[in-house]
Design a protein around this nucleic acid. Structure first.
Lengths: 238, 238
DNA sequence: TCAAAAGTGTTCGATATACACCCATGC
DNA sequence: GCATGGGTGTATATCGAACACTTTTGA
């Protein structure tokens, strides 16, 4: 009986969200290229080390991927189906990447948020990384497609109780229009722009700047910034 | 390098909520009694088996604990600090309960909800189980106190997006007063009773019965029941 | 002067909050 | 008849939803 308790490897996998061209994107990494030249993309992840907490492992993966030390991230579920790593191709890749005979693999999935303009400081240890629109995610190994699917539900819940995290997806200075399109992308629905302006005006922690867009062929939009201190003060006062 | 990847046991731990005497309670189990006769309570849990998903393991733990086959339960976090099982007493208990030299233990924590009147069909494999008021939880082994603390935040979030789960904590037939006290216990604040009546009246899935309390020394309260079908219909229509 | 996006107010219905008294029952 | 908890309504404030035109700028 005692020998039947699981003794296993544990990994973390990160669903890294970015916002670009009015669309939510997820950062995927290349596992390998098959003979036909097809890309084989997957979620960035890693087995965790002996003396490492899962949160630390997720931070490590994200650092290796983007060069960013502290990203906003949130654990959202442990995926542990006994057959999640049973596909022969996936087994073969595990053998190659880590060690032979990994018979089962439990993973802890994380949401992470990335300012697209901060990525690409080529620290990445991966051959290639790629932003994929969430409405156009390729077939991926393991249960990574399911993880992505659940992450989309989870990111909305995250925003519900911590509205400040959306600003992690925008540049330091952003326009209302950018914020508006981001909300529309996350909730996948049209949001009335006039009501949205009112809503933002009510957010004391979204601060208008004097600066405006330059060289645009239409009325220049005002820039805003997110003020963390105002936000935290507001939170603690409630 | 490769040898430094973690290879570990994984457990599940369940925070089982019950509602009794106007208070939220958590079901704890006895680990052992020390020489001084002190109880040593902990969260019910178990290592997971080789071919077992974590959700199945949680269901198994709950079945062994209460005799209930399908309880409402929800995974809420993986706890994996490298030193969460480093206390010598905890190591000794692991050696005794499972096997020697478990050097690290990762656990997946679950919320579970239990109608108090359904427990106690003495299926339990535990020597003793005990309902503890959430404002009076004893010192527990591992990081179980922290798990309980986080579970209290999590149960509120759970109700936010699935209000039907509160009825898992009440008998089939319940009074508004019971429901009211349950909400007050979960949110730990007073809720105006008149507004609460209005709120319940607006819940089409909470159905008044003809039956009333008997043998009470005051006006007899009406019983209500939760109608799952109405609830689901409402959910899918939104 | 045209195209393209920025910015702006009002109305309405729904929802949340605050608040105090009478009712039914057993003892 | 009194103690105990059950049950009820109204007024106000707040929030979200619907809805269309003017402004600014560069080409």
């Amino acid at each position: 009986m005692k020998t039947s308790f699981i003794h296993t490897h544990v990994s973390v996998d990160c669903v890294v969200f970015g916002f670009e061209n009015d669309h939510l994107n997820i950062l995927l990494v290349q596992r390998n290229v098959d003979k036909k030249g097809n890309k084989d993309l997957k979620l960035p992840g890693s087995l965790i080390y002996n003396e490492e907490d899962v949160d630390d492992a997720a931070n490590r993966v994200l650092f290796e991927l983007t060069g960013i030390k502290k990203m906003s991230l949130k654990q959202f579920r442990c995926f542990a189906s006994p057959d999640r790593a049973s596909n022969p191709d996936d087994r073969k890749w595990l053998d190659f990447e880590y060690q032979p005979n990994i018979n089962r693999l439990i993973t802890v999935a994380y949401l992470a948020l990335c300012k697209v303009d901060r990525k690409l400081n080529n620290v990445s240890k991966y051959k290639q990384t790629e932003w994929c629109r969430i409405d156009n995610i390729p077939q991926m190994p393991f249960d990574h497609n399911q993880i992505v699917k659940e992450s989309l539900v989870e990111i909305r819940r995250w925003i519900e109780y911590n509205p400040s995290i959306v600003f992690e997806l925008l540049p330091q200075k952003f326009t209302i229009s950018q914020l508006h399109k981001l909300y529309e992308a996350i909730y996948n629905k049209k949001i009335d722009i006039r009501n949205f302006h009112k809503k933002v005006a009510a957010m004391s922690y979204v601060i208008p700047l004097d600066e405006r867009q330059k060289d645009v062929s239409h009325r220049a939009a005002r820039y805003f910034r997110f003020d963390k201190k105002s936000y935290n003060k507001l939170k603690t006062s409630i």
